[in-house]
């Protein structure tokens, strides 16, 4: 049971980390708290669902379709809201309320478009069946989720640390004013970061439909809470921390489900509260970030 919880925790934890990456990026770069993050994941899940049931293609194809779409929508949307955020005395709180509204709109539209019921994909991402690892049997989407999450996160790291735009993005993360004075096109870089953040959320949706046993419009709020817990554990605004936070979260959840199933539901909340109160800058972050 220890081995099962350990492996499942790591595999699912990597998925959680990936699912939270966009939230972390949006906060780190833009100081935007995207409460609608989970709802974007839900939209990604619906795209995967429609591809599989209507077009009969592998639901994972949702990812290459969602990425350019989400980047484009994200960039336009950010350009639309940036002036209001810029004018505000407290942009972080404003973004909280704004995206709270956006999440309601997305949830409502998803309910109108796909009904409020839960939709489940019966075919797995690589056929049905279980995978044997270390003598334990796992649903095959566990390793698939991890296998998508890890390279996805690596791509984000490559972008941030090995590309010119990534350098500009990191400059923006550390100081908006200095980035502006260094001749960085802050508006465009911000918009692109927001687009990438949404693309990451939508991509995670193609996996979430399996990991969470289906998709429904009302899932968004729970997914946002989970993603928030993950990034808080890893340190809000720290993309590398998000993956580590995901691992901590995944392991805690799997061990709780194995040993204390009655109380497992409390784990995410208690973990989130404990980290926030004991080390609000995140377990892995050294620098204090005031939020």
């Amino acid at each position: 049971m220890v081995l099962y919880a350990l492996i499942a925790g790591v595999l699912i934890g990597l998925f959680y980390g990936f699912a939270a990456l966009g939230l972390s990026l949006a906060f780190g770069v833009l100081r935007v708290v995207n409460i609608a993050h989970g709802d974007v994941i839900v939209l990604g899940s619906y795209l995967a669902y429609e591809l599989s049931t209507q077009a009969h293609i592998n639901p994972l194809f949702a990812i290459p379709i969602a990425v350019p779409l989400a980047v484009a929508i994200g960039m336009v949307f950010y350009r639309f809201v940036a002036p209001s955020l810029g004018r505000s005395k407290d942009p972080e709180m404003l973004s909280l309320i704004l995206f709270f509204g956006v999440s309601q709109v997305i949830e409502a539209l998803a309910t109108i478009g796909f009904s409020a019921n839960q939709d489940t994909l019966l075919t797995g991402p690589v056929g049905n069946g279980a995978v044997q690892m270390f003598g334990q049997s796992f649903p095959n989407y566990y390793p698939v989720a991890a296998a998508v999450a890890v390279p996805g996160a690596l791509l984000v790291m490559l972008y941030l640390y090995r590309s010119r735009l990534g350098l500009a993005t990191r400059a923006l993360m550390s100081s908006r004013a200095d980035a502006m004075l260094s001749g960085i096109d802050v508006g465009r870089t911000s918009a692109l970061s927001f687009g990438i953040a949404l693309a990451l959320a939508a991509s995670a949706g193609a996996l979430s439909i399996y990991v969470n046993g289906g998709v429904s419009p009302s899932q968004g709020a729970d997914l946002t809470t989970t993603a928030f817990a993950v990034v808080v554990i890893g340190g809000l605004g720290n993309p590398a921390g998000a993956l580590a936070g995901g691992l901590v979260f995944g392991l805690a959840e799997q061990f709780a489900q194995s040993y204390e199933p009655n109380w497992a539901g409390l784990v995410p909340y208690v973990l989130l509260l404990a980290v926030m109160l004991i080390k609000p800058e995140g377990l892995l972050s050294r620098r204090v970030r005031y939020a």
Partner: peptide
């Protein structure tokens, strides 16, 4: 503060 309080 801020978002931390709201989510907590």
């Amino acid at each position: 503060r801020g978002a931390y309080f709201a989510i907590a």
